[in-house]
């Protein structure tokens, strides 16, 4: 009885300070600090990489246009040349080629999981694909170096290293991303849509090809762009199999470089603040800007989702 008397007006805030009010603030402040840390981190990341990357042009006076379009990369001669086009070309060609290899495979795997054999697909194929996503990139690089490169050396003219080897390794690495998104898209498809097509006498493949694929196209593209983005930023696996020669190759089996491989290799060998070092930060800046472009494309595609 005494307790209830004490409680009489306890729901009126103005009375005394309540422990639970302090507690609410603990929660609010703690979670806010966590999210603030995340946001501040990304902003400082953009700021620092951008300011370092831009100093090549501002402090060292390198022409930005020359950097992007130049094909000669000779950082250590008397009048150094910083043409980064070979790296940009290498990054784009490996990642797009990887997507060209992985996209049909991923789509087929998704069709298998959703339409053909859902039981076996969900129990075996899906875990297998998720496992592929878990394998570290250095292991991919190692396998690429010890299996794919020698194989290509035997089959094709050249050393085996190059865009083809890089793209092949990357295609396996991005296969899980593409497959997962394609699978989600196909399984979200309303049953009525497919049934309608079957009711008209269409075969399974016609249904997939004429109904499922066009309807889920934006999501399929999202998966592919995400895959390209991942391939574009991948560093070590590519670096191990691409050869690292700083020029635009004449064939798929000739040594070349990507933005990430150039950064990885040279960052440790150049002095902080030198023009040779700063220009690597410019490459990183290009990499970062491309990330923004990819995120922007993905946002755009998600906005066009038809379901």
């Amino acid at each position: 009885m005494e307790r209830s008397v004490n409680m009489e007006r306890s729901y009126n805030k103005r009375q005394e300070a309540k422990p639970h009010i302090a507690e609410e603030w603990v929660g609010k402040i703690y979670t806010f600090i966590c999210i603030a840390f995340l946001v501040i981190t990304i902003f400082s990341m953009v700021y620092f990489v951008a300011s370092k990357g831009l100093s090549t042009f501002i402090v060292n006076g390198v022409n930005a246009f020359d950097l992007i379009t130049g094909v000669k990369w000779n950082p250590d001669i008397d009048i150094p040349q910083f043409g980064a086009l070979p790296f940009i070309f290498g990054s784009f060609s490996t990642s797009i080629l990887a997507a060209i290899i992985a996209a049909p495979l991923g789509f087929c795997a998704a069709v298998f999981i959703v339409e053909l054999a859902p039981k076996f697909g969900r129990r075996f194929l899906q875990p297998v694909i998720e496992l592929l996503a878990g394998i570290p990139s250095v292991v991919y690089g190692f396998v690429g170096l010890s299996v794919i490169v020698p194989l290509f050396r035997d089959l094709f003219p050249g050393q085996g290293i190059g865009i083809a080897a890089g793209a092949l390794v990357l295609s396996v690495m991005i296969l899980p991303t593409i497959t997962t998104i394609a699978t989600d898209a196909l399984s979200e498809l309303p049953a009525g849509l497919k049934e309608g097509s079957y009711a008209l006498g269409a075969t399974r493949w016609q249904t997939i090809y004429r109904v499922a694929l066009p309807t889920t196209m934006p999501q399929q593209m999202t998966g592919i762009v995400l895959g390209i983005a991942r391939a574009f930023g991948e560093a070590l696996a590519v670096q191990m199999v691409i050869g690292n020669a700083p020029h635009i190759p004449h064939s798929l089996f000739e040594s070349t470089s990507t933005l990430t491989s150039a950064i990885t290799l040279s960052m440790g060998n150049t002095a902080m603040g030198s023009v040779q070092n700063n220009v690597l930060w410019s490459l990183a800046l290009i990499l970062m800007l491309m990330t923004f472009v990819f995120v922007f494309i993905i946002r755009f595609l998600e906005g066009r989702k038809k379901l």
């Binding site: 409680m7 306890s10 729901y11 009126n12 805030k13 103005r14 309540k18 639970h20 009010i21 609410e24």
Partner: peptide, 11 residues
Amino acid sequence: SETDVVALRKH
């Protein structure tokens, strides 16, 4: 707005 809703719901 001055009501402490958490305490109120106890009642």
